[in-house]
Every structure is written in structure tokens, then in C-alpha cells.
């Protein structure tokens, strides 16, 4: 996905960004390599090593009382393959896939309309979106649970307007959780789509309009296909991002809506079973990498 000449998504769209064009020669000797040693060492020590340790832990044997001893056994993985955890995995994938789809379906037309506004309007919107981005997940969860509550929620407004008979509690529930996840990922989705959308040549849409296509039709048949790569990258980013959400399932969902992230944290922090938590994490990573691979493959094939 990195060999495109299409406008590069930037900022948070890390998934789709190329290393910048390197110009000139290769570095010679230790002196010229010096600048890269520090970042390489930091990433190695504080990212690759922790990952390796986690992988090793997932094979460790757990001893009663929160301790564990080095071993190589697959018990932790076997334990994962019980109905409770497998259904949690299925639910997490379903929930986050749905959240990613809804979020991008909202973000794409929005970003497109934004990109066609004046610079002033764009700036105002982006400052607003960046401010929303700085709302902590805890606050988002709390606010929406208030907005969806019986005592102080939106349903009271409907009653006041005579649209509903009595106030209702809409949270915790599946739709509430889904909406919360869409809310936290919408700013990210917009920021990732933005560069590709504003760099889209305006001739493309003008041609379609000249030929008599309606705005909605132009958007669906011309804009969406030419932004395909950015859309796929955003879908993946939002999917993975929501898969990692730990607070929202607890604040807006019921216990049966708890995702694998909640279970991993629960095992690691409250059950002191780090080996099992590590096994779930490795499993989750493999599944998300697999899904990302399939998505990329399908979108490549769709192009040909």
C-alpha cells in the first residue's frame, strides 16, 4: 500500500505513509551513522524488547498467587479457546468493524464537504476537531452516559418538546457503545482523510458535474473510488484504534459488551495472570494483523 502515486495521507495516517524520499548518497562510517543510533536504540530497547518479553510471557507457566515461572507451554492459548473468550473475540471484531464502517461513512462525506469550504471555514473546523480530540476517553464516556441517561439526558428534551411520553435510559447498551466508539474515532478519521481529500484534483469532480451527474452521484462514483486507498487506511486505523478501547465498553456497555481489551487488562491487573493476558494480546494482534492483510489484499484485487 505504500507504492502509490496518489496523494499521501499524512499526520495520523501512519499506516499509509512512506518514508520521505531520501536524496543522495548513503551514510559512511560511524560518524555519519551517529544520528540514527539513538532513535534506533530507543525503539529497540523500549518497543521491540517489551514486545519480545510479552511474547515470551505468553508461554510462561502460572503459579498460584500471581507468580509465574519460565516455561514453554501452550496452556494459555488453549485456555483462550473456550467459548467465553472466543465469543468475546467475535464480539470485539464485530463491534469494531461496525464502528469503523459507520465512522468512515460519516467522516468521508464530511471531510469532502469540508475540503470544498473556504480556508477560513476549514481552519475553524479543524481547530474545533483538534479540541474535541483532546477530550479524554473517560470524559467522552461520562458525557454520553449523562446524555443518554434517564435523569439528565436527551430523552428529557424529547419529553419537554412533547415528542416522547416519558424519559428513558438509553445507556448502557450496544447502540450507546457503538456511538461512543464512533465519537472518539471521528476526529482521527477526519484528520487522516483530510490530506487526501484536499489534494484531490477538482477537475475530477467538475468533469462529472459537467456530464450531468448529481452531487451525491458524483461523490459516490467519482470521489469515493479515487480515495479508495485513503478510505481503506482509515478503516483499518479506526478498527484497530477502537479494538484497543478499554474505558468506553465499561462506561457505555453492559458486561456482555466488554471487549478483549477489557478482558486483557482485567487478567493482567486484577487477576495478576500476566501470562494469560499476554496470550490474549498476542492472539488479538495476530487477528488484527490478519484482518488488515485481508482488507489490503481485497482492496488491491478490487483495483486490478
Amino acid at each position: 500500500m505504500t507504492t502509490t502515486r496518489e496523494p499521501q495521507p499524512t499526520m495520523t495516517s501512519a499506516a499509509a505513509v512512506l518514508p520521505p524520499d531520501a536524496a543522495g548518497d548513503g551514510p559512511r562510517g560511524l560518524r555519519q551513522h551517529l544520528p540514527v543510533l539513538y532513535p534506533a536504540a530507543m525503539l529497540l530497547v523500549f518497543f521491540v524488547v517489551p514486545f519480545g518479553i510479552m511474547l515470551a510471557f505468553s508461554f510462561f507457566h502460572r503459579v498460584q498467587g500471581g507468580f509465574y515461572e519460565p516455561a514453554f507451554e501452550l496452556d494459555n492459548y488453549a485456555r483462550f479457546l473456550t467459548p467465553l473468550f472466543v465469543s468475546a473475540l467475535g464480539f470485539s471484531i464485530l463491534l469494531c468493524g461496525l464502528a469503523a464502517t459507520v465512522c468512515v461513512a460519516l467522516a468521508l462525506p464530511f471531510t469532502w464537504l469540508l475540503g470544498r469550504s473556504s480556508v477560513r471555514v476549514q481552519t475553524a473546523w479543524l481547530v474545533f476537531i483538534l479540541s474535541v480530540l483532546s477530550l479524554s476517553e473517560v470524559i467522552v464516556g461520562f458525557s454520553w452516559s449523562v446524555l443518554l441517561s434517564r435523569s439528565a439526558g436527551v430523552s428529557n428534551l424529547l419529553v419537554a418538546l412533547g415528542l416522547a411520553a416519558e424519559p428513558a435510559a438509553w445507556s448502557p447498551s450496544f447502540p450507546a457503545l457503538l456511538m461512543g466508539l464512533c465519537y472518539v474515532s471521528l476526529p482521527y478519521a477526519v484528520l487522516v482523510l483530510y490530506p487526501s481529500v484536499v489534494r484531490l484534483p477538482s477537475e475530477i469532480t467538475e468533469a462529472a458535474r459537467t456530464l450531468g451527474a448529481s452531487p451525491v452521484r458524483t461523490f459516490l462514483t467519482v470521489v469515493v473510488p479515487s480515495l479508495r486507498r485513503a478510505v481503506v487506511a482509515t478503516l483499518i486505523l479506526v478498527f484497530v484504534f477502537t479494538l484497543g478501547s478499554y474505558l468506553l465498553p465499561q462506561l457505555l456497555g453492559q458486561p456482555q459488551h466488554w471487549t478483549l481489551s477489557v478482558l486483557i487488562t482485567d487478567q493482567a491487573v486484577y487477576q495478576s495472570n500476566v501470562p494469560f493476558a499476554a496470550a490474549i494480546a498476542v492472539f488479538l494482534m495476530l487477528v488484527s494483523l490478519g484482518l488488515i492483510g485481508i482488507t489490503l489484499l481485497l482492496s488491491e484485487r478490487g483495483r486490478a
Partner: peptide
């Protein structure tokens, strides 16, 4: 460094720097 020099391992290093963000945060 990646901007200044043409290096083979540039891609790998860049991917490594990007990786923390494209994994589920809980991992």
C-alpha cells in the same frame, strides 16, 4: 536521517517508529 540518506533499512526503521500507533493500544 531517512530524509538525508538513501539507506536500505530506512523502511524498516520507519515502520518500527509507526508500529506503536497501528497496534491496538492495549497490546
Amino acid at each position: 536521517f531517512l530524509w538525508r540518506y538513501r539507506v536500505r533499512y530506512a523502511r524498516a526503521l520507519f515502520a518500527l517508529g509507526v508500529a506503536p500507533f497501528i497496534l491496538p493500544p492495549v497490546i
